[in-house]
Amino acid sequence: MAALVAAGSGLVSHLITGTLNDRTVAVGVAAFLTGLVATALADRVRAPPSPSSWPG
């Protein structure tokens, strides 16, 4: 899964570098977008709480 995220980030960075010609900005944008996607996915695929943490 981590390799897929890294590949996606690299692809976004490469595509933005091709249009903006500024690698620093492209990497910053790719990192920001990767963070947004990771946060959204973490909310969706979070493991359910363990029974030992249930009240009562």
Rank of each mutant, 00 (worst) to 15 (best):
T17R: 03
G35W: 02
P51E: 10
V27M: 07
G56I: 11
P49N: 03
P55N: 08
L15N: 14
A3R: 15
W54S: 13
D22T: 07
G56M: 08
S13R: 05
G8L: 07
P49A: 12
L15E: 12
P51N: 12
G35T: 05
V25H: 05
H14C: 09
L41Y: 01
A26P: 00
A3I: 11
L33S: 11
P51H: 01
G10N: 15
R46L: 12
S9Y: 12
P49S: 08
V45H: 13
A38H: 01
P48Y: 01
T34L: 07
G28Y: 02
V25T: 11
V25P: 06
T24Y: 01
D43C: 07
L15I: 12
P48S: 08
F32T: 06
S9W: 06
F32P: 01
T19K: 13
G10H: 12
V25C: 14
M1Y: 15
G8I: 03
W54A: 15
A31M: 10
A2I: 08
V27Y: 00
A47F: 03
V5T: 04
G10I: 00
V37F: 03
V45G: 09
A42D: 06
W54L: 15
G35I: 02
A47M: 05
T19V: 09
A31G: 05
A40K: 08
A30E: 02
T24H: 05
V29I: 15
P49W: 01
R46W: 04
T17H: 04
R46S: 10
T34G: 13
G10Q: 12
N21L: 08
L33Y: 00
A7F: 09
V12S: 03
L11T: 11
A42K: 02
T19M: 09
G28R: 07
D22C: 03
L36T: 05
A31K: 03
P48R: 04
R46I: 02
G28K: 07
L4P: 00
A3K: 15
A31R: 07
S52P: 00
L15P: 04
A42C: 10
R23T: 13
P51S: 08
I16C: 14
P48D: 09
A30D: 02
A7M: 04
T34R: 04
T39H: 08
A31T: 10
P48Q: 06
W54M: 14
L41R: 01
A26D: 01
A2R: 12
S50C: 04
V12T: 05
P55R: 09
G10T: 02
S52M: 09
V37P: 01
